[in-house]
Nucleic acid binder design. Structure first.
Lengths: 322, 322
DNA sequence: CTGTTAGCGCATTCAG
DNA sequence: CTGAATGCGCTAACAG
């Protein structure tokens, strides 16, 4: 009888009609628990992330939207499951107890205990981000190397020769948060490649921290004519500091915000030139990766690194003449 | 044997020890599907919201954090389940199919088809927000009446006599989005009560819309000395428009952003005075409401309307002398 | 206090 | 192509 619904075997037209009629008659609903129990599969994918932190800026929304849609198309439910970073065991138990078939892990750090727990229990997972070790792990990530290279190139092409990079917090660097580490390294490499005088700093995720940091940079290196920022909240402080000093954007100083969105860029005046975080693409790709692992099918060959496209605003321009 | 875990009946110390030993020995995990099936209860609460829209500003995060914690303390899992607003049926089926025991519905409009579907199916739910009809429905909401009254009082006390209110979009008003409607009405009532010249406008959720709107207000009523805003994204445009006209905040014009957070206020210079959206409180209260409905216990008498507290910034001050 | 047992509602065998 | 029978791994009701 259940075959009529699942299509797992050929069904006669008449039989199907009979079943359908009965279903409608009784207001029948398939019971998810019974299905999960019998099929040993919940058809739920859990997106776990450390207690939905502030300042998500819509990138998470975009990601979740795409991931959810991709999962649905494949007959799965995508649910967001808030967990503190310390609750490794709970994340693992989600799958061990059959609440979910697989896990998407966000905000992965280079050495992430949650990943260790998942590996140890053979739980299917895909990382949004990357641990240092990648062997046999499924992941998708932003191509920070490429993004920072493009950012430096963009500014170097405009004639800037002294560029500062405002990164995420020192704490994130110390705890090995991949984006922070990779972006710093890539910024340096790109600066060297283009013969740029580079300053890089970390900043807490607050406007005030960004303002103080920027102010310090301008004191130390007044010849700085461009800022690359990868810290949405601190970037508000960056522009505040420039305004404090009567520096005009982009005439005196250029600002390029990376791994964010044009929507956030539009909050500034003039609107910031940004390099857009590819939330949608990451969402889709990560679910594809996870499903490939779950269904044992070969993961369709597709790039795991996704790039941030430049979205022109009005905050970058030619380096001023000295 | 399961009694040892659930504590549903008294257990001898020795028996318990024996069970525990066996559990550890075999790496036993309770199967969630089997538990749900046998107990007819999933211990999952679904927080459904229209595909995690942009501009969440952290209030959703704060809400989810508190809701999640409250649920956990009561032995439930809180999961966030993205649904488009059109998918009434799917939301309802979550519970009918036993995927979740109850639903928290966010972004409720005055006439919300999702709520109709839930009611028709006898699904336990709590609204974050309110439909026009409230009979027999469980809800918690921000006290917009009080918030707007407090906002107007704050500015009137500072001597402002002409105040403009920048609300959510016209579309949200037309479709009967509760916050938009209630805030508008409350703003008017408060203005009348204080003898204030009031202008109220809607604005799309974009900085550009906010800027144009503000500009139009200043053209039409140049005597306006204060803005109340309840539109996080548009507020960026409000301050841009003021700067366009060389109006200083708060010397020439005061800005009070309501139903947002001091963190968002800190993105401005000077930092905005805000009335903070009580995300934490709403999260906790809403889960309490839902659990009361689920467990049939009398809902602890507690206010369903939660107020927004004033968080002083530096964007409101005495009305300028004319 | 403890051991045993009958379903929960499906998917998936197995016969027909 | 179809109907009937077996468990999935638990909870809760039953006896002891």
């Amino acid at each position: 009888m259940s075959y009529a619904l699942s299509g797992a075997r050929p069904i006669g037209t008449e039989t199907r009609a009979r079943v359908m009629a009965a279903i409608k008659e009784l207001g029948f609903e398939r019971n998810a628990a019974a299905r999960s129990l019998a099929a040993r599969r919940s058809h739920v994918l859990a997106l776990v992330l450390p207690t939905v932190a502030g300042g998500l800026s819509g990138t998470l929304g975009e990601f979740a939207q795409a991931a959810s849609q991709t999962a649905r198309d494949a007959g799965y439910h995508l649910v967001i499951w808030p967990f503190d970073r310390e609750e490794h065991a709970e994340v693992r138990d989600l799958v061990r107890q059959g609440q979910a078939d697989g896990v998407l892990v966000m905000e992965v750090s280079l050495h992430d205990e949650r990943i260790d727990a998942l590996l140890a229990s053979q739980v299917p997972f895909t990382m949004i981000g990357r641990t240092a070790e990648l062997d046999g792990r499924s992941w998708v990530d932003i191509d920070f190397e490429r993004t920072l290279t493009d950012a430096v190139d963009h500014l170097a092409d405009l004639g800037h020769t002294t560029i500062a990079f405002v990164n995420h917090s020192q704490h994130s660097l110390d705890t090995g948060y991949g984006p922070t580490v990779r972006a710093r390294d890539a910024f340096h490499a790109a600066a060297v490649a283009r013969g740029i005088h580079a300053t890089d700093v970390t900043s807490d995720e607050s406007p005030l921290a960004g303002r103080l940091t920027t102010s310090a940079i301008l004191d130390e290196r007044p010849e700085t004519t461009a800022f690359v920022t990868m810290n949405e909240t601190a970037t508000f402080g960056v522009t505040q500091a420039l305004r404090d000093r009567r520096l005009r954007v982009p005439d005196d100083v250029s600002v390029l915000a990376v791994v964010t969105s044009p929507e956030v860029g539009a909050m500034y005046h003039p609107p910031l030139t940004t390099m857009r975080a590819p939330g949608h693409e990451l969402g889709r790709r990560s679910v594809e990766e996870l499903l490939a692992a779950l269904e044992g099918t070969a993961p369709r060959e597709a790039p795991r690194l996704v790039t941030c496209a430049l979205s022109p605003g009005a905050s970058t321009g030619p380096a001023p003449r000295r």
